[in-house]
Nucleic acid binder design. Structure first.
Lengths: 227, 227
DNA sequence: GGATAAAACATATCGCTGTTATGTAATACT
DNA sequence: AGTATTACATAACAGCGATATGTTTTATCC
Protein backbone atom coordinates (compact mmCIF):
# COMPACT_ATOMS: atom_id res chain seq x y z
CA UNK A 1 0.00 0.00 0.00
CA UNK A 2 2.73 2.44 0.95
CA UNK A 3 3.78 4.11 -2.27
CA UNK A 4 7.45 3.68 -1.72
CA UNK A 5 9.28 5.49 -4.43
CA UNK A 6 11.30 3.29 -6.69
CA UNK A 7 15.03 3.34 -6.17
CA UNK A 8 15.95 6.28 -8.37
CA UNK A 9 19.43 5.01 -9.04
CA UNK A 10 18.93 3.05 -12.22
CA UNK A 11 15.87 4.76 -13.64
CA UNK A 12 17.56 7.74 -15.29
CA UNK A 13 20.47 5.53 -16.22
CA UNK A 14 18.17 3.35 -18.29
CA UNK A 15 16.53 6.34 -19.92
CA UNK A 16 19.92 7.82 -20.78
CA UNK A 17 21.18 4.57 -22.24
CA UNK A 18 17.98 4.14 -24.23
CA UNK A 19 18.24 7.68 -25.57
CA UNK A 20 21.84 7.12 -26.56
CA UNK A 21 21.06 3.82 -28.27
CA UNK A 22 18.15 5.38 -30.12
CA UNK A 23 20.24 8.35 -31.20
CA UNK A 24 23.36 6.44 -32.21
CA UNK A 25 22.04 3.15 -33.59
CA UNK A 26 18.39 3.75 -34.30
CA UNK A 27 15.21 2.08 -33.11
CA UNK A 28 16.26 -1.50 -33.73
CA UNK A 29 19.01 -1.16 -31.13
CA UNK A 30 16.43 -0.61 -28.41
CA UNK A 31 15.87 -3.99 -26.77
CA UNK A 32 15.52 -5.12 -23.20
CA UNK A 33 18.53 -7.39 -23.52
CA UNK A 34 20.71 -4.70 -25.01
CA UNK A 35 19.65 -2.30 -22.28
CA UNK A 36 20.35 -4.89 -19.62
CA UNK A 37 23.83 -5.47 -21.01
CA UNK A 38 24.65 -1.78 -21.26
CA UNK A 39 23.36 -1.09 -17.75
CA UNK A 40 24.97 -4.16 -16.19
CA UNK A 41 21.58 -5.29 -15.09
CA UNK A 42 18.91 -7.75 -16.17
CA UNK A 43 15.99 -7.38 -18.53
CA UNK A 44 13.68 -7.18 -15.54
CA UNK A 45 14.86 -3.67 -14.70
CA UNK A 46 12.85 -2.34 -17.63
CA UNK A 47 9.72 -4.00 -16.30
CA UNK A 48 10.07 -3.11 -12.61
CA UNK A 49 10.77 0.54 -13.39
CA UNK A 50 8.76 1.21 -16.55
CA UNK A 51 6.36 -1.68 -16.88
CA UNK A 52 7.87 -2.64 -20.21
CA UNK A 53 9.46 -1.12 -23.25
CA UNK A 54 6.41 1.06 -23.92
CA UNK A 55 6.85 2.80 -20.58
CA UNK A 56 10.50 3.48 -21.22
CA UNK A 57 9.77 4.84 -24.68
CA UNK A 58 7.07 7.02 -23.19
CA UNK A 59 9.59 8.41 -20.73
CA UNK A 60 11.90 9.23 -23.60
CA UNK A 61 9.07 10.95 -25.45
CA UNK A 62 8.30 13.04 -22.37
CA UNK A 63 11.91 14.12 -22.19
CA UNK A 64 11.90 14.81 -25.90
CA UNK A 65 8.96 17.17 -25.51
CA UNK A 66 10.66 18.83 -22.55
CA UNK A 67 13.78 19.34 -24.62
CA UNK A 68 11.77 20.79 -27.50
CA UNK A 69 9.91 23.11 -25.15
CA UNK A 70 13.21 24.18 -23.62
CA UNK A 71 14.60 24.99 -27.04
CA UNK A 72 11.57 27.08 -27.96
CA UNK A 73 11.53 28.92 -24.66
CA UNK A 74 15.05 30.15 -25.22
CA UNK A 75 13.91 32.29 -28.14
CA UNK A 76 13.74 35.89 -26.93
CA UNK A 77 10.89 38.34 -27.36
CA UNK A 78 12.24 41.27 -29.34
CA UNK A 79 10.78 44.28 -31.08
CA UNK A 80 10.50 42.23 -34.27
CA UNK A 81 7.93 39.55 -33.41
CA UNK A 82 8.01 38.17 -36.94
CA UNK A 83 11.72 37.49 -36.56
CA UNK A 84 10.92 35.85 -33.22
CA UNK A 85 8.39 33.64 -34.96
CA UNK A 86 10.90 32.69 -37.63
CA UNK A 87 13.44 31.87 -34.97
CA UNK A 88 10.88 29.64 -33.26
CA UNK A 89 10.67 27.74 -36.51
CA UNK A 90 14.43 27.50 -36.72
CA UNK A 91 14.63 26.25 -33.14
CA UNK A 92 11.97 23.66 -33.86
CA UNK A 93 13.89 22.38 -36.84
CA UNK A 94 17.18 22.51 -34.96
CA UNK A 95 15.79 20.36 -32.17
CA UNK A 96 14.36 17.83 -34.59
CA UNK A 97 17.64 17.47 -36.49
CA UNK A 98 19.53 17.08 -33.22
CA UNK A 99 17.34 14.12 -32.21
CA UNK A 100 16.00 12.66 -35.43
CA UNK A 101 15.00 9.22 -34.16
CA UNK A 102 13.34 10.63 -31.09
CA UNK A 103 11.51 13.18 -33.22
CA UNK A 104 10.25 10.36 -35.42
CA UNK A 105 8.86 8.58 -32.39
CA UNK A 106 7.23 11.75 -31.07
CA UNK A 107 5.52 12.85 -34.27
CA UNK A 108 6.01 10.27 -36.94
CA UNK A 109 4.19 7.71 -34.89
CA UNK A 110 7.08 5.34 -35.46
CA UNK A 111 5.69 2.29 -33.72
CA UNK A 112 8.89 1.31 -31.92
CA UNK A 113 7.92 -1.97 -30.28
CA UNK A 114 4.22 -1.40 -30.46
CA UNK A 115 4.47 1.87 -28.59
CA UNK A 116 1.65 4.30 -29.18
CA UNK A 117 1.20 7.81 -27.88
CA UNK A 118 -1.21 8.60 -25.10
CA UNK A 119 -3.61 11.49 -25.30
CA UNK A 120 -1.47 13.02 -22.56
CA UNK A 121 1.60 12.79 -24.79
CA UNK A 122 -0.23 14.62 -27.53
CA UNK A 123 -1.28 17.28 -25.05
CA UNK A 124 2.40 17.79 -24.33
CA UNK A 125 2.93 18.19 -28.04
CA UNK A 126 0.33 20.87 -28.34
CA UNK A 127 1.56 22.53 -25.16
CA UNK A 128 4.72 23.51 -26.93
CA UNK A 129 2.56 25.55 -29.30
CA UNK A 130 2.16 28.09 -26.52
CA UNK A 131 5.27 29.95 -27.55
CA UNK A 132 4.07 30.34 -31.11
CA UNK A 133 0.60 31.42 -29.99
CA UNK A 134 2.03 34.18 -27.83
CA UNK A 135 4.33 35.22 -30.61
CA UNK A 136 1.49 35.38 -33.12
CA UNK A 137 -0.40 37.64 -30.75
CA UNK A 138 2.54 40.00 -30.68
CA UNK A 139 2.65 39.91 -34.47
CA UNK A 140 -0.98 41.02 -34.48
CA UNK A 141 -0.25 43.83 -32.05
CA UNK A 142 2.71 45.01 -34.12
CA UNK A 143 0.49 45.26 -37.18
CA UNK A 144 2.63 42.75 -39.04
CA UNK A 145 0.05 39.96 -39.16
CA UNK A 146 -3.51 40.45 -40.28
CA UNK A 147 -5.71 40.32 -37.18
CA UNK A 148 -6.97 36.80 -36.68
CA UNK A 149 -6.81 33.68 -34.58
CA UNK A 150 -3.40 33.34 -32.95
CA UNK A 151 -3.90 29.66 -32.20
CA UNK A 152 -4.84 28.93 -35.78
CA UNK A 153 -1.76 30.79 -37.03
CA UNK A 154 0.40 28.77 -34.65
CA UNK A 155 -1.13 25.55 -35.91
CA UNK A 156 -0.39 26.49 -39.52
CA UNK A 157 3.21 27.36 -38.67
CA UNK A 158 3.62 24.12 -36.76
CA UNK A 159 2.20 21.82 -39.41
CA UNK A 160 4.13 23.47 -42.23
CA UNK A 161 7.46 23.38 -40.40
CA UNK A 162 6.81 19.87 -39.19
CA UNK A 163 6.13 18.72 -42.72
CA UNK A 164 9.34 20.21 -43.98
CA UNK A 165 11.36 18.65 -41.16
CA UNK A 166 9.68 15.29 -41.68
CA UNK A 167 10.49 15.29 -45.39
CA UNK A 168 14.03 16.39 -44.59
CA UNK A 169 14.53 13.55 -42.13
CA UNK A 170 13.04 11.16 -44.67
CA UNK A 171 15.66 12.22 -47.20
CA UNK A 172 13.14 13.66 -49.65
CA UNK A 173 14.62 17.12 -49.92
CA UNK A 174 17.76 17.13 -52.04
CA UNK A 175 19.56 19.70 -54.13
CA UNK A 176 18.73 21.94 -55.80
CA UNK A 177 15.59 21.97 -53.66
CA UNK A 178 17.31 20.94 -50.45
CA UNK A 179 15.89 21.40 -46.99
CA UNK A 180 17.71 24.67 -46.30
CA UNK A 181 16.33 26.35 -49.37
CA UNK A 182 12.80 25.07 -48.86
CA UNK A 183 12.91 26.01 -45.20
CA UNK A 184 13.90 29.62 -45.82
CA UNK A 185 11.25 29.98 -48.50
CA UNK A 186 8.62 28.36 -46.34
CA UNK A 187 9.38 30.63 -43.39
CA UNK A 188 8.94 33.73 -45.51
CA UNK A 189 5.84 32.30 -47.13
CA UNK A 190 4.21 31.59 -43.80
CA UNK A 191 4.73 35.16 -42.68
CA UNK A 192 3.30 36.49 -45.93
CA UNK A 193 0.28 34.23 -45.72
CA UNK A 194 -0.30 35.56 -42.20
CA UNK A 195 -0.44 39.10 -43.48
CA UNK A 196 3.10 40.39 -43.53
CA UNK A 197 4.49 42.07 -46.66
CA UNK A 198 7.00 40.28 -48.84
CA UNK A 199 9.78 42.70 -48.01
CA UNK A 200 9.17 42.83 -44.26
CA UNK A 201 8.89 39.05 -44.07
CA UNK A 202 12.12 38.55 -45.99
CA UNK A 203 13.88 41.01 -43.72
CA UNK A 204 12.68 39.44 -40.49
CA UNK A 205 13.41 35.90 -41.68
CA UNK A 206 16.91 36.97 -42.64
CA UNK A 207 17.37 38.75 -39.33
CA UNK A 208 16.31 35.69 -37.39
CA UNK A 209 19.10 33.70 -38.97
CA UNK A 210 21.74 35.70 -37.17
CA UNK A 211 20.15 34.97 -33.82
CA UNK A 212 20.51 31.23 -34.19
CA UNK A 213 23.93 30.92 -32.59
CA UNK A 214 23.13 32.80 -29.40
CA UNK A 215 19.54 31.79 -28.78
CA UNK A 216 19.24 28.29 -30.20
CA UNK A 217 22.50 26.51 -30.75
CA UNK A 218 23.80 27.62 -27.34
CA UNK A 219 21.11 25.59 -25.58
CA UNK A 220 22.47 22.75 -23.53
CA UNK A 221 21.60 19.39 -24.98
CA UNK A 222 20.37 17.86 -21.73
CA UNK A 223 17.89 20.21 -20.16
CA UNK A 224 16.05 18.65 -17.28
CA UNK A 225 17.91 16.09 -15.20
CA UNK A 226 14.65 15.95 -13.26
CA UNK A 227 16.48 16.32 -9.96
CA UNK B 1 21.78 -17.65 -65.38
CA UNK B 2 18.62 -17.76 -67.45
CA UNK B 3 16.41 -15.04 -65.98
CA UNK B 4 13.32 -17.20 -65.82
CA UNK B 5 10.44 -15.15 -64.53
CA UNK B 6 9.06 -16.25 -61.21
CA UNK B 7 5.64 -17.86 -61.24
CA UNK B 8 3.43 -14.80 -61.13
CA UNK B 9 0.56 -16.58 -59.42
CA UNK B 10 1.29 -15.93 -55.79
CA UNK B 11 3.29 -12.69 -55.98
CA UNK B 12 0.41 -10.22 -56.25
CA UNK B 13 -1.62 -12.34 -53.87
CA UNK B 14 1.00 -11.83 -51.18
CA UNK B 15 1.17 -8.11 -51.84
CA UNK B 16 -2.59 -7.81 -51.65
CA UNK B 17 -2.78 -9.74 -48.41
CA UNK B 18 0.04 -7.69 -46.94
CA UNK B 19 -1.68 -4.46 -47.94
CA UNK B 20 -4.92 -5.64 -46.40
CA UNK B 21 -3.25 -6.70 -43.17
CA UNK B 22 -1.39 -3.40 -42.96
CA UNK B 23 -4.55 -1.41 -43.61
CA UNK B 24 -6.86 -3.36 -41.33
CA UNK B 25 -4.66 -4.43 -38.43
CA UNK B 26 -1.63 -2.22 -38.62
CA UNK B 27 2.08 -2.90 -38.96
CA UNK B 28 2.35 -5.53 -36.22
CA UNK B 29 0.04 -7.84 -38.17
CA UNK B 30 2.60 -8.07 -40.97
CA UNK B 31 4.54 -11.26 -40.30
CA UNK B 32 5.78 -14.02 -42.53
CA UNK B 33 3.80 -16.61 -40.63
CA UNK B 34 0.62 -14.61 -40.76
CA UNK B 35 1.10 -14.08 -44.48
CA UNK B 36 1.77 -17.76 -44.99
CA UNK B 37 -1.41 -18.66 -43.15
CA UNK B 38 -3.55 -16.16 -45.05
CA UNK B 39 -2.12 -17.24 -48.40
CA UNK B 40 -2.28 -20.96 -47.61
CA UNK B 41 1.41 -21.16 -48.27
CA UNK B 42 4.60 -21.27 -46.26
CA UNK B 43 6.85 -18.56 -44.92
CA UNK B 44 9.33 -19.34 -47.68
CA UNK B 45 7.10 -17.74 -50.29
CA UNK B 46 8.04 -14.32 -48.95
CA UNK B 47 11.72 -15.11 -49.40
CA UNK B 48 11.62 -16.76 -52.80
CA UNK B 49 9.54 -13.96 -54.28
CA UNK B 50 10.67 -10.88 -52.37
CA UNK B 51 13.89 -11.82 -50.65
CA UNK B 52 12.35 -11.13 -47.27
CA UNK B 53 9.91 -8.83 -45.59
CA UNK B 54 11.82 -5.74 -46.68
CA UNK B 55 11.27 -6.61 -50.32
CA UNK B 56 7.57 -7.12 -49.79
CA UNK B 57 7.25 -3.84 -47.93
CA UNK B 58 9.14 -2.14 -50.75
CA UNK B 59 6.63 -3.55 -53.20
CA UNK B 60 3.81 -2.13 -51.13
CA UNK B 61 5.52 1.24 -51.04
CA UNK B 62 5.86 1.23 -54.80
CA UNK B 63 2.17 0.49 -55.13
CA UNK B 64 1.43 3.20 -52.60
CA UNK B 65 3.28 5.76 -54.70
CA UNK B 66 1.50 4.54 -57.81
CA UNK B 67 -1.82 4.94 -56.06
CA UNK B 68 -0.94 8.45 -54.90
CA UNK B 69 0.18 9.40 -58.37
CA UNK B 70 -3.02 8.01 -59.80
CA UNK B 71 -5.07 10.06 -57.39
CA UNK B 72 -3.22 13.24 -58.30
CA UNK B 73 -3.45 12.61 -62.01
CA UNK B 74 -7.21 12.48 -61.84
CA UNK B 75 -7.36 16.17 -60.94
CA UNK B 76 -8.42 18.09 -64.06
CA UNK B 77 -6.78 21.14 -65.55
CA UNK B 78 -9.40 23.89 -65.53
CA UNK B 79 -9.47 27.59 -66.12
CA UNK B 80 -8.84 28.15 -62.41
CA UNK B 81 -5.35 26.72 -61.85
CA UNK B 82 -5.36 27.79 -58.20
CA UNK B 83 -8.45 25.68 -57.63
CA UNK B 84 -6.66 22.85 -59.43
CA UNK B 85 -3.72 23.26 -57.05
CA UNK B 86 -6.02 23.22 -54.04
CA UNK B 87 -7.67 20.08 -55.34
CA UNK B 88 -4.26 18.47 -55.70
CA UNK B 89 -3.78 19.14 -52.00
CA UNK B 90 -7.16 17.65 -51.23
CA UNK B 91 -6.39 14.57 -53.30
CA UNK B 92 -3.07 14.18 -51.52
CA UNK B 93 -4.75 14.28 -48.15
CA UNK B 94 -7.56 12.02 -49.30
CA UNK B 95 -5.09 9.37 -50.42
CA UNK B 96 -3.15 9.56 -47.17
CA UNK B 97 -6.28 9.19 -45.05
CA UNK B 98 -7.43 6.26 -47.17
CA UNK B 99 -4.19 4.38 -46.50
CA UNK B 100 -2.84 5.76 -43.25
CA UNK B 101 -0.47 2.93 -42.36
CA UNK B 102 0.96 2.76 -45.83
CA UNK B 103 1.38 6.51 -45.89
CA UNK B 104 3.31 6.29 -42.62
CA UNK B 105 5.66 3.76 -44.15
CA UNK B 106 6.13 5.86 -47.27
CA UNK B 107 6.83 9.19 -45.62
CA UNK B 108 6.95 8.78 -41.89
CA UNK B 109 9.85 6.43 -42.19
CA UNK B 110 8.02 3.94 -40.00
CA UNK B 111 10.67 1.26 -39.78
CA UNK B 112 8.34 -1.73 -40.23
CA UNK B 113 10.67 -4.68 -39.69
CA UNK B 114 13.86 -2.78 -40.34
CA UNK B 115 12.67 -1.65 -43.72
CA UNK B 116 14.27 1.51 -45.05
CA UNK B 117 13.56 3.42 -48.24
CA UNK B 118 15.87 3.26 -51.20
CA UNK B 119 16.95 6.34 -53.04
CA UNK B 120 14.80 5.01 -55.86
CA UNK B 121 11.78 4.99 -53.59
CA UNK B 122 12.38 8.62 -52.72
CA UNK B 123 12.68 9.43 -56.40
CA UNK B 124 9.22 7.95 -56.82
CA UNK B 125 8.08 10.23 -54.04
CA UNK B 126 9.39 13.33 -55.73
CA UNK B 127 8.05 12.15 -59.06
CA UNK B 128 4.53 12.69 -57.84
CA UNK B 129 5.43 16.37 -57.50
CA UNK B 130 5.22 16.70 -61.25
CA UNK B 131 1.51 17.43 -61.14
CA UNK B 132 1.99 20.28 -58.71
CA UNK B 133 4.89 21.70 -60.71
CA UNK B 134 2.84 21.82 -63.87
CA UNK B 135 -0.05 23.35 -61.97
CA UNK B 136 2.17 26.02 -60.45
CA UNK B 137 3.35 26.93 -63.92
CA UNK B 138 -0.23 27.46 -64.99
CA UNK B 139 -0.81 29.60 -61.91
CA UNK B 140 2.07 31.78 -63.04
CA UNK B 141 0.68 32.05 -66.54
CA UNK B 142 -2.74 32.99 -65.22
CA UNK B 143 -1.23 35.82 -63.21
CA UNK B 144 -2.46 34.33 -59.97
CA UNK B 145 0.94 33.40 -58.56
CA UNK B 146 3.86 35.77 -58.43
CA UNK B 147 6.34 34.69 -61.09
CA UNK B 148 8.89 32.38 -59.56
CA UNK B 149 10.21 28.86 -59.35
CA UNK B 150 7.45 26.34 -60.01
CA UNK B 151 9.40 23.47 -58.48
CA UNK B 152 10.05 25.44 -55.34
CA UNK B 153 6.38 26.33 -55.04
CA UNK B 154 5.49 22.66 -55.46
CA UNK B 155 7.94 21.69 -52.73
CA UNK B 156 6.42 24.23 -50.34
CA UNK B 157 2.92 22.97 -51.06
CA UNK B 158 4.04 19.40 -50.60
CA UNK B 159 5.83 19.88 -47.31
CA UNK B 160 3.07 21.98 -45.79
CA UNK B 161 0.31 19.57 -46.76
CA UNK B 162 2.40 16.60 -45.73
CA UNK B 163 2.97 18.15 -42.32
CA UNK B 164 -0.70 18.73 -41.80
CA UNK B 165 -1.58 15.20 -42.84
CA UNK B 166 1.15 13.76 -40.65
CA UNK B 167 -0.08 15.65 -37.60
CA UNK B 168 -3.63 14.61 -38.43
CA UNK B 169 -2.68 10.94 -38.63
CA UNK B 170 -0.75 11.32 -35.38
CA UNK B 171 -3.87 12.59 -33.66
CA UNK B 172 -2.42 16.00 -32.92
CA UNK B 173 -5.14 18.07 -34.55
CA UNK B 174 -8.28 18.15 -32.44
CA UNK B 175 -11.20 20.54 -32.09
CA UNK B 176 -11.48 23.43 -32.21
CA UNK B 177 -8.35 23.36 -34.36
CA UNK B 178 -9.13 20.09 -36.05
CA UNK B 179 -7.54 18.88 -39.26
CA UNK B 180 -10.36 20.10 -41.51
CA UNK B 181 -10.14 23.64 -40.22
CA UNK B 182 -6.35 23.77 -40.33
CA UNK B 183 -6.33 22.22 -43.78
CA UNK B 184 -8.68 24.76 -45.31
CA UNK B 185 -6.76 27.63 -43.75
CA UNK B 186 -3.44 26.18 -44.85
CA UNK B 187 -4.61 25.75 -48.43
CA UNK B 188 -5.67 29.39 -48.65
CA UNK B 189 -2.49 30.52 -46.91
CA UNK B 190 -0.30 28.65 -49.35
CA UNK B 191 -1.98 30.31 -52.30
CA UNK B 192 -1.61 33.72 -50.70
CA UNK B 193 2.04 33.17 -49.92
CA UNK B 194 2.54 32.23 -53.56
CA UNK B 195 1.15 35.56 -54.68
CA UNK B 196 -2.59 35.15 -54.92
CA UNK B 197 -4.91 37.65 -53.25
CA UNK B 198 -6.82 36.72 -50.13
CA UNK B 199 -10.17 36.89 -51.86
CA UNK B 200 -9.16 35.00 -54.98
CA UNK B 201 -7.46 32.30 -52.95
CA UNK B 202 -10.47 31.86 -50.70
CA UNK B 203 -12.69 31.59 -53.73
CA UNK B 204 -10.58 29.01 -55.51
CA UNK B 205 -10.08 26.94 -52.39
CA UNK B 206 -13.81 26.94 -51.80
CA UNK B 207 -14.46 26.07 -55.44
CA UNK B 208 -12.10 23.13 -55.29
CA UNK B 209 -14.08 21.59 -52.47
CA UNK B 210 -17.01 20.95 -54.75
CA UNK B 211 -14.86 19.07 -57.21
CA UNK B 212 -13.79 16.46 -54.64
CA UNK B 213 -16.59 14.01 -55.27
CA UNK B 214 -16.15 13.75 -59.02
CA UNK B 215 -12.40 14.03 -59.39
CA UNK B 216 -10.98 12.50 -56.23
CA UNK B 217 -13.38 10.31 -54.32
CA UNK B 218 -14.49 8.58 -57.52
CA UNK B 219 -11.02 7.14 -58.09
CA UNK B 220 -10.87 3.39 -57.93
CA UNK B 221 -8.94 2.14 -54.92
CA UNK B 222 -6.86 -0.38 -56.82
CA UNK B 223 -5.20 1.36 -59.73
CA UNK B 224 -2.40 -0.65 -61.30
CA UNK B 225 -2.62 -4.41 -61.26
CA UNK B 226 0.77 -4.25 -62.97
CA UNK B 227 -0.35 -6.51 -65.78
C1' DG C 1 18.09 -4.11 16.98
C1' DG C 2 15.32 -7.65 15.10
C1' DA C 3 11.13 -8.86 12.45
C1' DT C 4 8.61 -8.18 8.46
C1' DA C 5 6.96 -6.56 4.16
C1' DA C 6 7.92 -4.71 -0.18
C1' DA C 7 10.63 -3.62 -3.87
C1' DA C 8 14.61 -4.83 -7.02
C1' DC C 9 16.93 -8.11 -9.36
C1' DA C 10 18.52 -12.76 -11.66
C1' DT C 11 17.37 -16.80 -14.03
C1' DA C 12 14.66 -19.56 -16.81
C1' DT C 13 10.98 -19.96 -19.82
C1' DC C 14 7.07 -19.02 -23.23
C1' DG C 15 5.43 -17.52 -27.54
C1' DC C 16 6.54 -14.84 -31.15
C1' DT C 17 9.49 -12.78 -34.80
C1' DG C 18 12.70 -12.81 -39.29
C1' DT C 19 15.73 -15.73 -41.39
C1' DT C 20 18.30 -19.81 -43.00
C1' DA C 21 19.23 -24.68 -44.11
C1' DT C 22 17.66 -28.74 -46.04
C1' DG C 23 14.87 -31.78 -48.58
C1' DT C 24 11.17 -32.44 -52.05
C1' DA C 25 7.96 -31.51 -55.80
C1' DA C 26 6.91 -28.96 -59.77
C1' DT C 27 8.30 -26.50 -63.84
C1' DA C 28 10.78 -24.88 -67.89
C1' DC C 29 14.48 -25.33 -71.25
C1' DT C 30 17.69 -28.21 -74.17
C1' DA D 1 13.60 -37.62 -72.23
C1' DG D 2 16.94 -35.43 -69.40
C1' DT D 3 18.42 -31.75 -66.73
C1' DA D 4 18.65 -27.53 -64.35
C1' DT D 5 16.16 -24.17 -62.00
C1' DT D 6 12.54 -22.61 -59.38
C1' DA D 7 8.78 -23.13 -55.81
C1' DC D 8 7.39 -24.90 -51.75
C1' DA D 9 7.26 -27.40 -47.09
C1' DT D 10 9.40 -28.51 -42.86
C1' DA D 11 12.44 -27.78 -39.25
C1' DA D 12 15.59 -25.23 -36.86
C1' DC D 13 18.31 -20.96 -35.09
C1' DA D 14 18.92 -16.55 -32.96
C1' DG D 15 16.64 -12.85 -31.31
C1' DC D 16 12.70 -10.29 -29.44
C1' DG D 17 9.03 -8.74 -25.52
C1' DA D 18 7.01 -10.53 -21.74
C1' DT D 19 6.09 -13.52 -17.65
C1' DA D 20 6.78 -16.64 -13.66
C1' DT D 21 9.53 -17.82 -9.94
C1' DG D 22 13.05 -17.63 -6.66
C1' DT D 23 16.59 -14.70 -4.33
C1' DT D 24 18.67 -10.66 -2.58
C1' DT D 25 18.52 -6.16 -1.03
C1' DT D 26 16.12 -2.35 1.04
C1' DA D 27 13.00 0.16 3.85
C1' DT D 28 9.54 0.40 7.45
C1' DC D 29 7.55 -0.76 11.95
C1' DC D 30 7.47 -2.52 16.74
Amino acid sequence: MSPRRADPTIRPVLVDIAARLLAEEGPQALSTRRLATEADSSTMAVYTHFGGMSGLVREMVREGFARLHHHLTRVRRTGDPVADMALLGRAYRYNALANPHLYAVMFGGSSLAGFSLTEEDRQHGRYTLGNAVECATRCFAAGRFRAGDAELVAHLMWSAIHGLVALELGGYLIAPYDADRCFEAQLAGLMVSSGDTLEAAAGSVAASRGRMRDEVEAVRTEPAADG
